[in-house]
Amino acid sequence: MNGVHDMGGMHGFGPIGVEPVEPVFHADWERSVYAVSSAIGPISDWTLDADRHSTESIPGPQYLNASYYEKWFISLCNMLVERGYVSAQELASGTSLGPAKKVGDVLKAEDVADYVSASGRSSRSTDTKPGFEIGQEIRTRNINPSGHTRLPRYARGHKGIIERIHGVHVFPDTNAHGQGEQPQWLYAVRFSAKELWGSNQPGRTDVFIDLWESYLEAA
Protein backbone atom coordinates (compact mmCIF):
# COMPACT_ATOMS: atom_id res chain seq x y z
CA MET A 1 0.00 0.00 0.00
CA ASN A 2 1.18 3.52 -0.75
CA GLY A 3 1.16 4.58 2.91
CA VAL A 4 3.21 7.03 4.93
CA HIS A 5 5.23 4.05 6.25
CA ASP A 6 6.95 3.87 2.83
CA MET A 7 9.33 6.70 3.68
CA GLY A 8 12.36 6.23 1.45
CA GLY A 9 13.24 9.52 -0.27
CA MET A 10 10.70 11.73 1.51
CA HIS A 11 11.71 15.21 2.65
CA GLY A 12 10.68 17.31 5.62
CA PHE A 13 11.11 15.06 8.65
CA GLY A 14 13.89 17.15 10.17
CA PRO A 15 17.20 16.11 11.72
CA ILE A 16 17.96 12.62 13.05
CA GLY A 17 17.72 12.97 16.81
CA VAL A 18 20.35 10.69 18.31
CA GLU A 19 20.30 10.08 22.04
CA PRO A 20 23.94 9.70 23.17
CA VAL A 21 23.24 6.96 25.71
CA GLU A 22 19.94 5.38 24.88
CA PRO A 23 18.13 2.90 27.15
CA VAL A 24 16.55 -0.16 25.51
CA PHE A 25 13.14 1.04 26.72
CA HIS A 26 12.13 4.55 27.78
CA ALA A 27 9.20 3.64 30.03
CA ASP A 28 7.58 0.67 31.73
CA TRP A 29 4.69 0.71 29.29
CA GLU A 30 7.18 0.28 26.41
CA ARG A 31 8.58 -2.79 28.19
CA SER A 32 5.04 -4.14 28.53
CA VAL A 33 4.12 -3.53 24.90
CA TYR A 34 7.29 -5.23 23.76
CA ALA A 35 6.85 -8.21 26.08
CA VAL A 36 3.15 -8.74 25.45
CA SER A 37 3.61 -8.52 21.66
CA SER A 38 6.43 -11.08 21.81
CA ALA A 39 4.66 -13.42 24.21
CA ILE A 40 1.53 -13.48 22.08
CA GLY A 41 3.61 -14.68 19.09
CA PRO A 42 3.41 -18.44 19.81
CA ILE A 43 -0.39 -18.40 20.19
CA SER A 44 -1.22 -15.87 17.48
CA ASP A 45 -3.01 -17.15 14.38
CA TRP A 46 -1.66 -14.35 12.20
CA THR A 47 1.67 -14.08 10.37
CA LEU A 48 4.47 -11.60 11.01
CA ASP A 49 3.64 -10.13 7.61
CA ALA A 50 0.01 -9.62 8.65
CA ASP A 51 1.35 -7.92 11.77
CA ARG A 52 3.48 -5.57 9.69
CA HIS A 53 0.52 -4.80 7.45
CA SER A 54 -1.54 -4.03 10.52
CA THR A 55 1.07 -1.46 11.59
CA GLU A 56 1.31 0.20 8.17
CA SER A 57 -2.50 0.32 8.03
CA ILE A 58 -2.62 2.74 10.96
CA PRO A 59 -4.09 5.93 9.42
CA GLY A 60 -1.33 8.23 8.14
CA PRO A 61 -1.68 11.14 10.56
CA GLN A 62 -1.81 8.76 13.55
CA TYR A 63 1.13 6.70 12.20
CA LEU A 64 3.31 9.80 11.94
CA ASN A 65 2.40 11.07 15.40
CA ALA A 66 2.70 7.79 17.28
CA SER A 67 5.97 6.64 18.81
CA TYR A 68 7.34 3.24 17.80
CA TYR A 69 5.85 1.27 20.69
CA GLU A 70 2.58 3.20 20.44
CA LYS A 71 2.34 1.85 16.89
CA TRP A 72 3.04 -1.68 18.18
CA PHE A 73 0.30 -1.20 20.77
CA ILE A 74 -2.28 0.11 18.29
CA SER A 75 -1.46 -2.66 15.84
CA LEU A 76 -1.61 -5.38 18.52
CA CYS A 77 -4.98 -4.17 19.81
CA ASN A 78 -6.36 -4.14 16.28
CA MET A 79 -5.14 -7.68 15.59
CA LEU A 80 -6.44 -9.04 18.90
CA VAL A 81 -9.94 -7.69 18.22
CA GLU A 82 -9.93 -8.57 14.52
CA ARG A 83 -8.91 -12.17 15.19
CA GLY A 84 -11.36 -12.64 18.06
CA TYR A 85 -8.90 -12.88 20.97
CA VAL A 86 -10.58 -10.03 22.83
CA SER A 87 -13.66 -7.92 22.14
CA ALA A 88 -13.65 -4.17 21.74
CA GLN A 89 -15.64 -3.94 24.98
CA GLU A 90 -13.04 -6.01 26.83
CA LEU A 91 -10.29 -3.83 25.43
CA ALA A 92 -12.08 -0.70 26.62
CA SER A 93 -12.80 -2.08 30.10
CA GLY A 94 -9.60 -4.08 30.62
CA THR A 95 -11.68 -6.94 32.01
CA SER A 96 -12.61 -10.27 30.51
CA LEU A 97 -16.32 -10.42 29.65
CA GLY A 98 -16.49 -13.85 28.07
CA PRO A 99 -14.59 -17.08 27.37
CA ALA A 100 -11.08 -16.89 25.91
CA LYS A 101 -10.31 -18.06 22.40
CA LYS A 102 -8.89 -21.61 22.27
CA VAL A 103 -5.14 -21.27 21.85
CA GLY A 104 -2.06 -23.53 21.90
CA ASP A 105 0.63 -23.60 24.58
CA VAL A 106 1.19 -20.22 26.19
CA LEU A 107 4.84 -19.09 26.42
CA LYS A 108 6.26 -19.94 29.87
CA ALA A 109 9.15 -18.17 31.59
CA GLU A 110 11.38 -21.24 31.35
CA ASP A 111 10.80 -21.45 27.58
CA VAL A 112 11.66 -17.84 26.77
CA ALA A 113 15.37 -18.49 26.13
CA ASP A 114 14.52 -21.22 23.60
CA TYR A 115 11.82 -19.09 22.03
CA VAL A 116 14.13 -16.08 21.62
CA SER A 117 16.93 -18.14 20.09
CA ALA A 118 14.61 -20.26 17.93
CA SER A 119 14.65 -19.88 14.20
CA GLY A 120 11.71 -18.70 12.15
CA ARG A 121 13.35 -18.90 8.77
CA SER A 122 11.48 -17.43 5.82
CA SER A 123 13.50 -19.41 3.25
CA ARG A 124 11.84 -22.44 1.65
CA SER A 125 13.20 -25.35 -0.34
CA THR A 126 12.54 -25.39 -4.06
CA ASP A 127 13.12 -27.37 -7.22
CA THR A 128 12.84 -24.26 -9.39
CA LYS A 129 15.72 -22.22 -10.79
CA PRO A 130 16.06 -18.47 -10.29
CA GLY A 131 14.69 -16.45 -13.20
CA PHE A 132 17.56 -13.97 -13.04
CA GLU A 133 21.30 -14.37 -12.62
CA ILE A 134 23.90 -12.34 -10.78
CA GLY A 135 24.99 -9.34 -12.84
CA GLN A 136 21.83 -9.32 -14.94
CA GLU A 137 20.12 -6.00 -15.59
CA ILE A 138 16.47 -5.86 -14.53
CA ARG A 139 13.75 -3.27 -14.29
CA THR A 140 11.35 -3.11 -11.37
CA ARG A 141 7.69 -3.17 -12.27
CA ASN A 142 5.54 -0.14 -11.68
CA ILE A 143 2.98 -1.68 -9.35
CA ASN A 144 0.78 0.05 -6.78
CA PRO A 145 -0.93 -2.68 -4.77
CA SER A 146 -3.38 -1.52 -2.09
CA GLY A 147 -2.23 -4.38 0.18
CA HIS A 148 1.14 -5.26 1.73
CA THR A 149 4.21 -5.02 -0.51
CA ARG A 150 7.98 -4.80 -0.10
CA LEU A 151 8.67 -2.93 -3.31
CA PRO A 152 9.16 0.62 -1.99
CA ARG A 153 7.71 3.44 -4.07
CA TYR A 154 11.12 5.00 -4.61
CA ALA A 155 12.32 1.86 -6.40
CA ARG A 156 9.44 1.28 -8.83
CA GLY A 157 10.06 1.43 -12.57
CA HIS A 158 13.85 1.61 -12.17
CA LYS A 159 16.76 -0.26 -13.68
CA GLY A 160 18.98 -2.27 -11.38
CA ILE A 161 21.51 -5.11 -11.36
CA ILE A 162 21.08 -8.46 -9.59
CA GLU A 163 23.78 -8.43 -6.88
CA ARG A 164 22.94 -11.51 -4.77
CA ILE A 165 20.51 -14.39 -4.91
CA HIS A 166 19.12 -15.03 -1.42
CA GLY A 167 17.20 -18.21 -2.24
CA VAL A 168 13.44 -18.77 -2.21
CA HIS A 169 11.53 -16.91 0.51
CA VAL A 170 7.94 -16.57 1.70
CA PHE A 171 6.19 -13.84 -0.31
CA PRO A 172 4.92 -11.20 2.16
CA ASP A 173 2.45 -9.71 -0.33
CA THR A 174 0.32 -12.87 -0.12
CA ASN A 175 1.35 -14.09 3.34
CA ALA A 176 0.12 -10.86 4.93
CA HIS A 177 -3.37 -11.41 3.56
CA GLY A 178 -4.12 -15.05 4.35
CA GLN A 179 -3.26 -16.08 0.78
CA GLY A 180 -0.46 -18.44 1.77
CA GLU A 181 3.32 -18.28 1.59
CA GLN A 182 3.65 -18.59 -2.21
CA PRO A 183 7.47 -18.52 -1.91
CA GLN A 184 9.50 -16.84 -4.64
CA TRP A 185 13.14 -16.23 -5.50
CA LEU A 186 14.51 -13.26 -3.59
CA TYR A 187 17.35 -11.05 -4.83
CA ALA A 188 19.46 -8.19 -3.55
CA VAL A 189 19.21 -5.68 -6.40
CA ARG A 190 21.69 -2.84 -6.82
CA PHE A 191 20.43 0.55 -7.98
CA SER A 192 22.72 3.51 -8.62
CA ALA A 193 21.77 6.64 -6.71
CA LYS A 194 21.79 8.41 -10.07
CA GLU A 195 19.12 6.02 -11.40
CA LEU A 196 16.93 6.50 -8.32
CA TRP A 197 17.42 10.17 -7.51
CA GLY A 198 18.93 11.91 -10.54
CA SER A 199 22.41 13.11 -11.29
CA ASN A 200 23.27 15.44 -8.39
CA GLN A 201 24.80 12.71 -6.21
CA PRO A 202 28.39 13.18 -5.03
CA GLY A 203 30.71 10.17 -5.33
CA ARG A 204 29.67 6.63 -6.10
CA THR A 205 26.53 5.72 -4.19
CA ASP A 206 24.39 2.61 -4.61
CA VAL A 207 21.24 1.43 -2.90
CA PHE A 208 20.61 -2.30 -2.49
CA ILE A 209 17.06 -3.55 -2.01
CA ASP A 210 15.85 -7.10 -1.36
CA LEU A 211 13.19 -7.79 -3.99
CA TRP A 212 11.08 -10.81 -4.90
CA GLU A 213 11.09 -12.14 -8.45
CA SER A 214 7.56 -11.02 -9.35
CA TYR A 215 8.58 -7.40 -8.73
CA LEU A 216 11.15 -7.66 -11.52
CA GLU A 217 11.32 -7.98 -15.29
CA ALA A 218 14.31 -8.34 -17.60
CA ALA A 219 15.51 -4.91 -18.69
Binding site: Y34, V36, L91, S93, G94, T95, S96, K108, D111, V112
Partner: peptide, 22 residues
Protein backbone atom coordinates in the same frame (compact mmCIF):
# COMPACT_ATOMS: atom_id res chain seq x y z
CA UNK B 1 -1.14 -0.72 28.09
CA UNK B 2 -1.56 -1.79 31.72
CA UNK B 3 -5.20 -2.50 31.06
CA UNK B 4 -4.39 -4.60 27.97
CA UNK B 5 -1.69 -6.52 29.81
CA UNK B 6 -3.98 -7.44 32.70
CA UNK B 7 -6.74 -8.42 30.26
CA UNK B 8 -4.41 -10.77 28.38
CA UNK B 9 -3.18 -12.29 31.64
CA UNK B 10 -6.78 -12.75 32.85
CA UNK B 11 -7.67 -14.41 29.53
CA UNK B 12 -4.74 -16.78 29.96
CA UNK B 13 -2.99 -15.68 26.75
CA UNK B 14 0.25 -14.54 28.39
CA UNK B 15 2.15 -15.60 31.49
CA UNK B 16 3.34 -12.60 33.56
CA UNK B 17 6.58 -14.36 34.50
CA UNK B 18 7.39 -14.93 30.83
CA UNK B 19 6.89 -11.20 30.21
CA UNK B 20 9.53 -10.38 32.83
CA UNK B 21 12.02 -12.81 31.30
CA UNK B 22 11.42 -11.41 27.81
Amino acid sequence: VKSLESLLIEKGYVDPEALDVL
